Simulated assay, not measured.
Amino acid sequence: MSEAPTLTRKPEGPPRVPGAKAVRPRSAATIIIVRRDGPKPKVLMGKRHGGHDFMPNLWVFPGGRIDRSDYRAPHATDLRSEVAAKFSRHLPLHKGRALAMAAVRETFEEAGLLLAKPVPARTAVGPWREFLAEGVAPDLDALDVIARAVTPPMVAKRFDTWFLLAEADRLVSLERKPDCGELEEIAWIEFDEALQLNLPAVTRTMIREAVERLADPDRPSPFMRFKGRGWATTHL
């Protein structure tokens, strides 16, 4: 079995004000979507706008923070039992599903792609209005958990991020709908080429982790946190 991944670079983002208490990490989730219809697998990535104060001009996976609406929005399929169990060992009831919903919603908002299945049309308000207007609801059964990482305390913006994996053939279509503009460029990129991009340290680590997971679906899911003066890795 391969060794657990490590992070060797300093985290990107504005540093915490000297003397200030560490901010509480915000709950977030992101999806590594893999496309396998070519000679080599490709991963969906987008480039963040240069005007962002957090990770400007870096390539990332689509995803974002959890919203209250993610707890109550409808879904076409639920998390697989083993995925739900992995969430429930670490999170309050229903939060794992809400994180998965957040990742699916943000993928639509940022990349214009729907990880979903058709459902009867319904109206909604708030962040889910445009998603549900497409006549679909999230396909949570398509998701697997591959890792979790918490931003170190010396950074002003911190996230407790769950990294999920899904196959591109579970998307409604590979044709993108107009995105929200948070990502300047969006592309399907071969894994070895993706590692040559300008990436956050954690994204680089997760690309390598995804490659390992594709080769070994039973690989344990790492949980990376900053302790003392360096990264500590356990498993979910």
Rank of each mutant, 00 (worst) to 15 (best):
P62W: 00
P62R: 08
P62S: 11
P62D: 07
P62K: 12
P62Y: 00
P62V: 02
G63D: 09
G63Y: 11
G64S: 14
G64Q: 07
G64L: 05
G64C: 05
G64N: 09
R65I: 04
R65A: 07
R65W: 01
R65M: 05
I66S: 05
I66N: 05
I66K: 03
D67V: 05
D67W: 06
R68A: 12
R68G: 04
R68E: 14
R68P: 02
R68L: 06
R68M: 03
S69V: 04
S69F: 03
S69Q: 10
D70N: 10
D70R: 11
D70T: 05
D70G: 07
D70K: 12
D70P: 01
D70Y: 07
Y71F: 11
Y71I: 01
Y71H: 13
Y71A: 06
R72M: 08
R72H: 12
R72Q: 13
R72G: 11
R72K: 13
R72P: 00
A73F: 03
A73V: 02
A73Q: 10
P74G: 13
P74T: 11
P74V: 04
P74E: 11
H75N: 02
H75I: 09
H75W: 01
H75L: 00
H75T: 12
A76S: 07
A76R: 09
A76D: 09
A76P: 04
A76N: 06
A76T: 02
A76H: 02
A76C: 07
A76I: 01
A76M: 01
T77H: 08
T77G: 06
T77D: 10
D78G: 01
D78E: 04
D78S: 04
D78H: 02
L79N: 02
L79K: 07
L79R: 03
R80P: 00
S81M: 06
S81N: 10
S81K: 13
S81Q: 13
E82W: 10
E82L: 01
E82D: 15
E82H: 14
E82A: 09
V83Y: 04
V83K: 10
V83G: 04
V83A: 13
V83C: 04
A84F: 00
A84P: 05
A84C: 06
A84G: 11
A84W: 00
A85N: 10
A85D: 14
A85Q: 14
A85E: 15
A85C: 04
K86Y: 00
K86Q: 15
K86S: 15
K86G: 10
K86V: 11
K86F: 00
K86M: 14
K86D: 14
F87Y: 14
F87S: 12
F87K: 12
F87V: 07
F87C: 07
S88L: 08
S88I: 02
R89W: 01
R89D: 15
R89C: 01
R89F: 01
R89S: 15
H90R: 15
H90Y: 10
H90C: 13
H90W: 08
L91W: 02
L91K: 07
L91E: 12
P92R: 12
P92V: 09
P92E: 05
L93I: 05
L93Q: 15
L93H: 12
L93M: 07
L93K: 15
L93R: 15
H94V: 06
H94W: 02
H94C: 00
H94G: 03
K95P: 00
K95N: 08
K95V: 08
K95S: 06
K95A: 04
K95W: 01
K95H: 13
G96F: 00
G96H: 06
G96W: 02
